[in-house]
């Protein structure tokens, strides 16, 4: 063992994944919230089992309905004990985006040794609070603007235009899921994408993403 161990942080450099999950009332219909819970759980368990790669995947989950709440604070995936999310209320997406931007800009929570975070926004509706200011933080914020972003629009009522604003200025895409079954496909894709990053020479480099049509979500 090195004689330098008392001067360094021994843990692997983190690769943060932050999930913003719409848990508004409409998510209770058609099995969407159940599918979201199963998909999130599978993704986190897959991340926890990721033994290869240069980074350790850390996960945070922010749920938003009448208000936004940090359901799972950022922590190693292997430490996460996810309780099932329940749906009900409006769609405070702006508040969720504000919490996320605060988190990404906080160097105590995301130290400089972190790899660039991936932010995943999942929603089946339109925001019921102001999103203009929070979205601007992802376009101009010192660190938030560098985050990799993906979004999933569930069903016909999702505000796809707003989701596109969220992913703009990153190489991210907006994917569409017509029903609950496709939510799982999306999270499998997110899992694959993040796992590929941890195993790459430079986890800051985003692997080539398939176009929404290639994901077989439509």
């Amino acid at each position: 063992m090195s004689d330098l161990r008392e001067f360094v942080r021994p843990d692997a450099r983190p690769l943060p994944v932050i999930v913003l999950a719409d848990v508004s009332g409409s998510m209770a219909a058609d099995g969407k919230i159940e599918s979201l819970n199963r998909s999130l759980d599978a993704m986190i368990r897959s991340f926890a089992a990721e033994a290869e790669g240069v980074a350790e995947i850390h996960v945070a989950v922010i749920g938003f309905a009448d208000r936004a709440e940090l359901v799972v604070p950022l922590q190693p995936a292997k430490s996460v004990a996810l309780k099932a999310l329940s749906a009900g209320g409006r769609t405070a997406m702006g508040a969720a985006l504000s919490i996320t931007a605060d988190l990404v800009e906080n160097q105590e929570v995301l130290p400089r040794r972190s790899y660039r975070p991936t932010i995943v926004l999942v929603s089946d509706g339109a925001p019921t609070d102001d999103v203009t200011g929070p979205i601007a933080r992802f376009q101009g914020g010192t660190r938030a603007s560098k985050a990799d972003r993906m979004a999933l629009a569930i069903g016909a009522d999702a505000d796809e235009m707003m989701l596109r604003k969220f992913v703009s200025a990153s190489d991210g895409q907006v994917y569409r899921a017509q029903d609950a079954a496709n939510i799982r496909s999306f999270f499998k894709f997110v899992t694959m994408s993040v796992s590929t990053r941890t195993r790459s020479v430079d986890p800051n480099l985003l692997p080539a993403l398939p176009s929404p049509g290639d994901l077989d979500l439509l």
Binding site: S2, L4, D11, A12, V54
Partner: peptide, 12 residues
């Protein structure tokens, strides 16, 4: 020698 035994998990 101490640098080669860098005590950080998954360092590269």
């Amino acid at each position: 020698r101490d640098l080669r035994k860098w005590p950080v998990i998954r360092h590269t």
